[in-house]
Amino acid sequence: MEASITFKAIGKTFRNNILLSDLSFGVEKGSTFVLIGENGAGKSVVLKLLVGLMEKDAGMAYINGKDISTRGDEIRSITGYMPQTIDLDDELTVLENLVIFGRLHGLSPCEAHSNAVDWSQRLKFENNLARMPEELSYGNKRLIQFARALVHDPEVIILDEPTKGLDPHSRTKVWDILDNLHQHKTILFATQNFAEAERYADRIAILHHGNIKMDGTLERLIETTHGLTRYRLSFSEPPQGQFMEKLKAFPRILRPQVKGTEIEFYSRERKQFFNVLELALQYELEDMDTSICRLHDLFIGLTDGGLE
């Protein structure tokens, strides 16, 4: 498939901090790609570099075959970007905000107006069109920012935590729209919501300290855990140190952790779990839960010293 976004060995430092180091990845046309990572991992920096809010120090980046360094204007006209922070113009009404940004992306006044009204109806904020942004709630402002990113019908949609601060209804609306758009557009978003990443992304990249630790489809990422399972045991009282010592002595029990009255650990071998269960039954075990490793576990493992 044709690449829509290409990042080749990108490096970026800011005030002596390395934000990105030798970062490379590609996003196929018509696919949804998500960047996940802890705070400060460099997710927003990647998105800002793509829309030209930041400039790279090293490497090459392309959107639809156009170099972001030399053809930034063309790239920005086909790109819709929603930042993490509110940056609506507080001296213009909601409608004026949308129309102006549509026109700045090359739409005629009529097109910009009709697209703005259309998006307000689709996202159900048409009653707020004549209001000033400061009169609206945080969630409503985020919806308007989402509409503003799409008002010029961009080929590439770049979203920084698109559902942050949205209520469940609005979140569903946003994802329904992105689901409809994703067959014709390239969507790149950054999030810390793993459920959304698992549900909506075709490919996922885990960013850590400015570089990609792992990327691929969800299935491929899960495969890399080789059947690793998370186990959780609940006790009536916080487990004693003696129990933890015995648990740690079991072979192939990974990352045992006490969380209040619960103990969590990972293992690939069910037999080992049965052995632990047998031990736990001697310590007022109340409940237990097992789950196949998901993105959240993989992320914790990769960014916090590994699961092994």
Binding site: V51, G52, L53, D73, E74, R76, S77, T79, Y81, P83, T85, I86, D87, L88, D89, D90, F101, L104, H105, G106
Partner: peptide, 14 residues
């Protein structure tokens, strides 16, 4: 003051 610069810079404006 208002984050307006970033909002403008992400458009094709020079």
């Amino acid at each position: 003051d208002s984050g307006q610069l970033d909002a403008l810079l992400k458009t094709p404006l020079r």
